[in-house]
Nucleic acid binder design. Structure first.
Lengths: 116, 116
DNA sequence: CATTTTCGTTACGATACCGTATCGTTTACC
DNA sequence: GGTAAACGATACGGTATCGTAACGAAAATG
């Protein structure tokens, strides 16, 4: 079932969710960081720095920095690949899953309140 | 008609739109800047620095800085209020309207492609 | 083996944002 | 009129990101 939106619904939803995100903030993720996080949690593993960089169309240092920051916040973890020790495998965490779960709930709630 | 989403649809939509935003970038708006822009274009005027700061729950310099940046990009304009020259009225621009129109189209397209 | 390639990280200078405090201008108040 | 309040902008030091370039480690190549 396709998700059909009117222009008003689309921007209204974005507005409502963005507004609440700003209010609660706390994490204050960049657009790129958010994209990386969603990619890690919504696309089947494994995820590597190089793979993420290619998928997002950014350079590798951008990924490394984002993983540094989000790692400190407990949203992701990194582990060396034992089969090819050049690679780093990015792993999900419980906190990261909870964070995105809450984001999903927020979007749903705001979508429901959109056109009451 | 309420906008009912499943958790998968909600995060999937966010993922797809965020990803494409990162790809096209160019503007690279902060979460706060995006919230300000949507507020200006989706809520009836007039908009003031103080009003936006209160609505977003941030300090006034945050609004001033965001308006500086987005003003340089042609997304918004500022004008002194002639009836109370302390105030600054934030105005919409054609470029800003076009930018949000494209964002709306993007959301709709990604929503449609979400569960094909 | 020696060399090249791949992978992620680090170094560097530049830029933009942050929060707090302060400023100049304008209006309201007494 | 003189003082206080409101409004937006600016100054400041701090922090995080940016892109480019170089680096060390590991694997592939010959």
């Amino acid at each position: 079932m396709p998700l059909d939106l009117t222009p008003s619904q689309a921007l209204g939803l974005w507005h409502a969710v963005t507004l609440q995100q700003v209010h609660e903030d706390g994490r204050d993720l960049t657009l790129r960081q958010m994209a990386i996080l969603l990619e890690i949690y919504l696309v089947p593993p494994p995820h590597t720095v190089r793979g993420l960089a290619a998928k997002l169309g950014v350079t590798k240092p951008v990924i490394t920095r984002a993983l540094d920051t989000m790692g400190e916040q407990g949203l992701v973890t990194r582990m060396r690949d034992d089969r090819d020790r050049r690679n780093v495998i990015i792993k999900r965490t419980v906190d990261g899953a909870l964070y995105l779960e809450r984001l999903g709930d927020l979007i749903i709630a705001r979508g429901r309140a959109q056109n009451p």
